[in-house]
Amino acid sequence: EDEVKKIVKRLIENGVDDEQIKEIVKRQGVDERIVDKVLKELK
């Protein structure tokens, strides 16, 4: 989960929008619920 957080944070800093972040992270095989949780925490 910490790995996911790092990735998502980097994507947000690069101006990637939420939908794209979800797609990218899902392609890495991460559960969507984890992605949603991380996005909420970082906003």
Rank of each mutant, 00 (worst) to 15 (best):
L42V: 14
K6T: 12
K22M: 13
K40M: 12
V25E: 01
E32Q: 11
D17E: 12
V8A: 04
R10I: 12
V16R: 08
E32L: 10
D36Y: 01
L42N: 04
E13D: 11
I21F: 01
D17L: 12
K6Q: 14
L39C: 02
K6P: 03
I21V: 07
D36V: 08
L11D: 00
V30W: 15
V16W: 14
R27H: 11
L39V: 04
I34R: 05
K9V: 09
E3Y: 12
D36T: 08
K37P: 01
Q28A: 13
R33Y: 13
G29F: 05
D17C: 06
I12L: 15
K9S: 09
E1M: 14
N14D: 15
K26Y: 04
I7H: 07
I34W: 08
D31N: 10
R33A: 15
E3D: 10
E32S: 12
E13F: 07
N14S: 14
N14Q: 15
D36A: 07
V30D: 01
E41Q: 07
V16N: 11
V4D: 01
V16F: 15
V4W: 08
E32D: 11
E3M: 14
E32V: 13
V16K: 11
V25P: 00
K5C: 06
K9T: 08
D17G: 13
V25D: 00
Q20I: 11
I7G: 02
K6G: 09
D18W: 14
E3L: 12
V4H: 01
E32N: 06
N14Y: 12
K26L: 15
V4P: 01
E32F: 04
R27D: 09
V38L: 13
D2P: 08
V8Y: 00
K22D: 01
K22S: 04
K9N: 07
K5Y: 05
V25K: 01
L42K: 03
D2M: 10
K40Q: 14
L39R: 03
E1K: 08
D18G: 08
R27K: 13
G15Q: 06
I34K: 05
L11Q: 01
D2Q: 11
K22I: 13
V25G: 03
G29I: 03
G29P: 02
N14E: 14
E1F: 14
E13V: 07
I12N: 02
V16I: 14
K9D: 04
D18E: 13
R10M: 12
I24T: 07
V35Q: 01
E19Y: 10
E41V: 02
E13N: 09
L11S: 01
D2H: 09
I12A: 06
V38P: 00
I7D: 03
K26E: 06
N14I: 15
D2L: 10
V38M: 10
L39N: 01
I7M: 10
R10Q: 14
D31A: 11
V4Y: 03
D36H: 04
E41H: 03
K22W: 05
K9R: 14
V38N: 01
G29H: 05
E1T: 11
V8T: 02
E13A: 11
E3H: 12
K22T: 06
D2W: 08
K43V: 09
I24W: 02
G15P: 01
K40S: 14
I24A: 06
I24F: 03
E1R: 07
K40P: 07
K6Y: 02
K37L: 07
I24D: 03
Q28W: 08
G15L: 06
I34G: 02
D31R: 05
K26F: 03
E19G: 09
N14F: 13
V25F: 14
L39I: 10
